[in-house]
């Protein structure tokens, strides 16, 4: 080694990223800025509407203000109960449907790649269709009402529950499984006594987490005719009874907050 290269390497400027990494980053910045500029140029925004906003918001609140408390006992209460049933029943149904899919997706239980691919396909397609779209599809099949909403919630949740359940099963320890297999236990017993006790806490935690999300989502399904409190909201909106809209929104707000607190509390107890 001559002295010159060593001196050069000491004097060399240190950089955090390789040239390739830097190039990718700059390419990304360029891409993002270009996409944003193009969007801002072509999106149709009417500036007059934006100027009008404070006035409209003031108008919204004056129309909302004396909240129509009477709307709660006459309409909102029944719709709220229906929403809660949609969310709970939809979650239960999705757990039942996602259980086999989750098992199929777990690489340590099912060893056939074809089955895993099939499970992955179910999980991805369930997640990429929005719950409102699922609701529209089921309204077309079963007619408007809570049944369509329940199925929409259930089908939308399969992807979420199945994916997390599959991951929980993959993390299960081999020890109990091998012990039971060595004792000659049939596959059903191995699952029930080796895998299930290990995944049970995460299973209930996933279920509660999804229930919390589903309570939020089931509140809007009524906008496309799938039952629940969204129906009361949609009726009040189309009649422009903003005081009734305010009552419905207040109810949704209260339920979402209560559900979140309850779910957080229960999760902290079981985990």
């Amino acid at each position: 080694m001559s002295a010159a290269p060593a001196a050069a390497s000491i004097a060399r400027e240190w950089q955090r990223f390789t040239p390739r990494q830097r190039l990718t980053r700059y390419a990304f910045y360029l891409f993002a800025v270009a996409a944003l500029m193009q969007s801002l140029r072509s999106v149709e925004i009417i500036p007059e509407f934006l100027e009008d906003m404070p006035e409209q918001v003031a108008d919204l609140f004056t129309r909302m203000w004396p909240i129509d408390w009477n709307y709660y006992p006459t309409t909102v209460h029944a719709a709220l109960v229906e929403t809660l049933h949609i969310a709970t029943l939809g979650t239960i149904l999705s757990l039942a449907l996602a259980f086999p899919v989750g098992i199929m997706a777990a690489r340590n239980i099912v060893r056939w790649p074809a089955v895993q691919l099939f499970a992955k396909f179910i999980l991805v397609s369930s997640r990429s269709v929005n719950s409102l779209v699922w609701a529209l599809l089921f309204v077309a099949v079963f007619g408007p009402g809570a049944l369509a909403g329940t199925l929409a919630i259930a089908f939308r949740s399969i992807g979420f529950v199945g994916k997390l359940l599959g991951e929980a099963l993959e993390e299960a320890h081999r020890g109990p499984v091998e012990a039971l297999t060595a004792a000659g236990a049939p596959p059903a017993s191995v699952f029930l006594k080796a895998y299930w006790p290990q995944v049970q806490p995460s299973f209930w935690s996933i279920a509660l987490f999804r229930l919390d999300i589903n309570i939020r989502e089931s509140a809007v399904l009524g906008l496309v005719g799938a039952g629940g409190i969204g129906t009361a909201l949609d009726d009040a909106l189309s009649l422009l009874y903003w005081d009734q809209v305010a009552m419905t929104l207040l109810t949704i707000f209260a339920v979402v907050i209560v559900a979140e607190i309850a779910v957080t509390y229960i999760r902290s107890r079981i985990l």
């Binding site: 919204l60 509140a219 907050i257």
Partner: peptide, 18 residues
């Protein structure tokens, strides 16, 4: 606390459709 769809309804009232 509100679903984006509900927030969208309120903004449609405030700034119009679009």
């Amino acid at each position: 606390s509100f679903h984006p769809m509900i927030v969208a309804i309120l903004f449609v009232k405030s700034v119009g459709f679009g």
